[in-house]
């Protein structure tokens, strides 16, 4: 689960925050987390269907 936390943090930091990083953008981070988890499920299903 550490791997998942790291990848979500990096992706959502990159999508939600930009230089000079003055504000935390918590709403965007929450939505990004929800989108990432949904994406993880879509990819997981597609990959498992493919390799079976």
């Amino acid at each position: 689960v550490t791997e998942l936390v790291n990848k979500i943090t990096e992706n959502c930091f990159e999508k939600c925050l930009t230089s000079p990083y003055a504000n935390a953008q918590e709403g965007c981070v929450d939505q990004c987390l929800a989108k990432y988890m949904r994406s993880w499920n879509v990819i997981s299903k597609a990959y498992v269907a493919r390799i079976q």
């Binding site: 939600c16 990004c32 989108k35 994406s39 990819i43």
Partner: peptide, 24 residues
Amino acid sequence: QMSVHQFTNMCFKQCVPAINNGDL
């Protein structure tokens, strides 16, 4: 699982350009 992590990381960057809500 590692492959799913790798693919999600890569495809999320390309397929989800902007965050405007929590749905896909």
